[in-house]
Structure formats: structure tokens, C-alpha cells
Nucleic acid binder design. Structure first.
Lengths: 130, 130
DNA sequence: ATAGGTGCAAAGCATTTGCAGCAGC
DNA sequence: GCTGCTGCAAATGCTTTGCACCTAT
């Protein structure tokens, strides 16, 4: 019983993780890959997928599936807010909602759930597109 | 200017719509197809996809993308509730949240957004899996 | 009769997997 | 040096599209 298998630290892994830290919102594996390439880091798409998967299993990032069916990742952050998105032009408004967070906690507690996380999105038509 | 193009009523379309009315929760196109077949209705998978798309554009059904990346549909219902899902065993608890609905309306109004809809999911560990 | 609907087969995408070579430790 | 990591190419799975035939109106 030596040390548990542990993860090996590699350039690619570090690059993916570092990139995620630059954003507060969700990014798809393909976007991450694209961004890394565009800044000279040579990382295979497969590796990006695997790194993101590893990170999510380690609880380092949150995972979601967006409307296009893409899996998107975001580094876990305490200060997490939500978005109001225009279905027509894509305009996004950041909204703060202490209400939601506390409501989530309350509901989860009532049902005995632990380590909960949530996703919450509102889509509609913005003033300009109405 | 006669009647607008209008939709043609067909057996397949009706079957898909009828099936959706039997469920209150989300079903994938493939599930709908499978179910229709299993009860003798002969409908092509392509048609199921197209019917569901048409229904969603007509605002008759809600659309979502689940964790597996499948697009799922549900007939619009006034009484729309949310779920608390166990990340481990998949146990699902239905939760009613007038709080959320009203909060959504308020936020949307403040920003001038109209015809808004929202998705809201909470995942965590249920008592049994903690 | 005619425009829209249907369904098969093929194409498109995002993601996963097989496998040989590479690199932390 | 051993084991895990990488990345290409091929495979998978859901969804869309091309196209010829069919059918509600």
C-alpha cells in the first residue's frame, strides 16, 4: 500500500487547467482546444477531452450540456452567477441571485441531499428583438 | 393573402403528439420512436425528429438537452416543476418552487425580456449515497 | 393537381476508444 | 524502467439532410 496511483503532471494538463482559470463561464472542449492552439500550445483534442473529464471527476470543474448538445466545462467558483440570454440575438445579461442559491440550499437540506450544485438558465427575447 | 401555409395533419404527427401527452416529463426522440414502434404505429425516426422540431417551434413543447447529450422534449404544461437528482444513483425528487418561477418573471421584466422560459436543475448526493 | 410530409440511406458533429509511441516519477 | 499520458485515426451515437415517393387538402 504505497501512495495511491495519483495523477501525473504534464504540460498539456496544466495548460487546460490554466486556461479554464481564465474564464468564469462555461467553455466547450472544442473551444478550449481551439484557444490552446491559437496561443501556440500544442495539445491534441483527445487530450483536452480527457483532461476535462479528469478534472470533472476530481470535482475541480462543473459540467453542463448546452443547447447545441456540447458538453461545457467551468472551473468551480464560489461566486457563481446566472445568465439571462436572448434566444434571438444571443445578448447575455449577468444576473445575481442570492435568492436562488439560498433556495437551493434549503430544498437540498430538506431532502437530505449533500454536495449539491445547480444549473439555472433563463432564455427569452431581449427588448431589441421583441 | 389566403390562409398562412399551415401544417398538414397526418397520422404520424398525431401519433407523436398523442404520445407526448401521456407523459409529464422529458422524453428523447429515440424513446418516442421506440415507443411508437412498440405499440404498432409505424413512424420513421426521421419523422419523429421533424415532428418534435415542428412542435417545439410552434411552442407546443419544451426542449432540453440531457446529460448524455440527447435532446429531450416535454409537452408544455402549466404545472412545471423541477428536479433534485442524485449524482450517484439517479434518484429523483420532484420539487415545487413557486419561488423560482416568480423570481424568473421578476428578473426578466426588469431587463425587458419577454417570452422567457427557464431550465433549472439541482444535482447532489442523496441521503443513501452520501 | 400540388405543396407539404414521409422515410430510407448517407452525411455531419461532438465525443470516445484502440493503439503505438512518449514522458513523468 | 514501468506506468500513465498523448494523439492520431477509426469508431460510435445522436441528429440532420438529400431525394424520390406519398398523401392531405
Amino acid at each position: 500500500m504505497t501512495q495511491p496511483p495519483a495523477q501525473r503532471q504534464t504540460r498539456q494538463r496544466a495548460a487546460v487547467q490554466a486556461l479554464l482559470n481564465e474564464f468564469v463561464d462555461f467553455r466547450s472542449a472544442q473551444q478550449v482546444h481551439e484557444l490552446l492552439r491559437s496561443r501556440g500550445e500544442s495539445v491534441g483534442l483527445t487530450t483536452v477531452y480527457r483532461s476535462l473529464q479528469a478534472l470533472s471527476e476530481a470535482g475541480e470543474v462543473d459540467v453542463r450540456v448546452n443547447d447545441e448538445g456540447e458538453t461545457v466545462y467551468r472551473k468551480c467558483s464560489e461566486h457563481h452567477h446566472h445568465h439571462l440570454v436572448c434566444r434571438e440575438c444571443g445578448t447575455t445579461v449577468e444576473i445575481a441571485g442570492p435568492t436562488v442559491e439560498s433556495w437551493v440550499d434549503r430544498v437540498a437540506t430538506v431532502h437530505g441531499f449533500t454536495s449539491v450544485s445547480h444549473t439555472f438558465d433563463i432564455v427569452g427575447l431581449c427588448p431589441a428583438c421583441s
